[in-house]
Structure formats: C-alpha cells, structure tokens
C-alpha cells in the first residue's frame, strides 16, 4: 500500500555501506574511525595480560607464550600501524577541537599540532624507558 501511495518515492542513490569509497577524504575519515576496533581488541589483550598476572607466574608465562605465536606478532604489528595512525589523526585535528586564544589572535594550528607531536615523543620515550 505504501508504495502505491507515494508517487515520488525517495530513492537514496548513495549506498549506506560503501559511501565512503567515493572520496579519499571519506576514506581517511573511515580509516580513522576503524582504528577504534584495533584499540578495543588491544585493550582486551592488556586485560588478558592483567588477568594472567593475577593468576600467577605460570599463567603469565602462558600469556607470554601465546603472545609469541605468529598471530601474536602479526596482531601487534597491525595494532602498531593502526594506533600510530590514530595518534597522528587525533593530533592533526587538535587545533579545531581545542583552539587556543591569546588576546585577539588564535594560536596558529601548526604550533598546537607540533607541540602535541613533541609531547607524544616525550611520553613514548618515558614509557619505553620505563617499560623495558
């Protein structure tokens, strides 16, 4: 009945599932959004590590062994690439997300982005030195 009643049914020309393939900008947007799947999965890996730590030395060794499988290496490599992309894409939009005003003028965007890159390098170094 519905089809008969509307003389000009609205037809959406753009696919709901593949719309982002039309433009590189949209693809970059989707790539940025998809990083969350890897971050979600990796966080659960950390939770598994924590669980094995709570269970004792044997369980922890078992966790390390499973990490050393080819899948463990592959997964970590993939997450490394994806999270680095998340970090870059996150820092690049900081001037829009939190513009800083100094008097009449706004602080130039590239200063804010570069400050984030610098802080990222320092934080990463601290974690790597502390963790290794």
């Amino acid at each position: 009945m519905g089809e008969e009643m509307s003389r000009k049914p609205y037809v959406r020309e753009i696919s709901k599932t593949t719309w982002f393939l039309r433009q590189p900008r949209y693809m970059r947007y989707m790539a940025r959004e998809v990083t969350c799947i890897f971050i979600f999965a990796y966080t659960f890996l950390l939770i598994c590590a924590l669980g094995s730590l709570a269970d004792g030395p044997d369980a922890f060794q078992e966790f390390l062994n499973s990490l050393r499988s080819p899948w463990g290496v592959l997964f970590n490599l993939a997450v490394l690439v994806v999270t680095a992309y998340h970090s870059l894409s996150w820092f690049v939009v900081t001037p829009q997300a939190m513009p800083i005003q100094r008097g009449e003028e706004f602080v130039p965007g590239n200063i804010i982005v570069n400050a984030h890159y610098g802080a990222w390098a320092v934080v990463s170094l601290i974690i790597l030195i502390w963790g290794m």
């Binding site: 990796y42 590590a49 050393r68 490394l80 998340h86 970090s87």
Partner: peptide, 25 residues
C-alpha cells in the same frame, strides 16, 4: 571518548611497541 582518544593517542603506540617486543621473544 575525548579523554580516551587523547590518552590512547599518547600512550598506546609505545605500549604496543613493548608488547611487540615481547611477541618477538
């Protein structure tokens, strides 16, 4: 979301480097 995005942007790549190091044995 915003706080998490910032924390993961700063922290996660370095954490993954450590677990990758562990994964390589």
């Amino acid at each position: 979301f915003a706080a998490g995005g910032t924390v993961t942007a700063f922290v996660t790549p370095a954490l993954v480097l450590i677990t990758l190091f562990a994964a390589f044995g």
